[in-house]
Amino acid sequence: MRVRTAIGGAALGLLAVFLIVVLFARQIAHPTVIAVVPETTAQEIWESEHAGAAHAAQAYGWKIYWNGPSREDDFPRQVQIVQQAIARKVGGLVLSPDHDVVLISAVQAALDKKIPTVIVGSPLGISPGSNLTFVVNDDIATGRLAAERAASFLKSGDSVAILGMNPNLLSSIERANAFEDAIEKRIPGIRIEERRSTSVSSSEAEETAEDVIHADPRLRVIFSLNVNQSRAAYGALLSTKSEGKIALIACDQDLDLLHHLRSGGIDSLIAQNTYVMGYDAIQALHKQLAGEHTERRIVVPPVLITRDNIDSQSVQQVLDMNWRVQE
């Protein structure tokens, strides 16, 4: 009787252990997942953020969930992705918002669920707090760098166009304002043409650029504020045969824009250091989760890229897109 009881007990014990292993294996095996949601996954500028976040997360054994809209103005899809991430109970959220107001409620929902959140790139229309950190580009520096570069092509009486100002993104406004302030101080009497657009339609952006080029023969510099507008402005320079006459200073990096920079179609490009932003965002999340003091606003300086420095180590580090961390 005792032998049978012992065998039965052992079998039941083994069964219990097996069930526990099966039931809890997923939780044991799965590391903390951090959702990193860029403005879009269709532009290489955000691949650098992916790389920075992945490298930082490796140190903590975290896994990165990376997904975003297929275009940078698709904020409904971005809201949906954030909501899905919240539903999955991610350990943290890193968001590069497509709209400075629309995404507030989604971020608030994450904070309500005690999910630490970091805003990367363009700031959101709310104040950072204990669980909400901003790791943003220094847009004022971007505007000033662009003005400094533009000044070398301009003299009093010339015109400069600022294209792609998007009221949905605070960074866009800040860059434009900083550029205007700096260029007016540097070259008094400069004429500034400013065009706003909330659309990322390339044809509309190109049409706008062509209009500006046709309308003002004294135009010497185009300062374009985002990837889409820079592509369109480059197309407009080609279509109006204005290469060499008008310098194009672009904001934000993308492979084709950098290729055009190398080939001379684009004068210079002011890159956001999204690699560092992604890296710092994960560090900030780690501090938040550890209950350590976190800076509420981290400002990352931009990098001016020209044909002279594009192959330098420091610039190529900014343009690192290798998100695949080697184990």
Binding site: E44, L255, D256, R262, D311, Q316, D320
Partner: peptide
Amino acid sequence: FPKREADYNRIFRF
């Protein structure tokens, strides 16, 4: 690929 921009620029024909 992609690694860094320069690596990609060498192999990619735009």
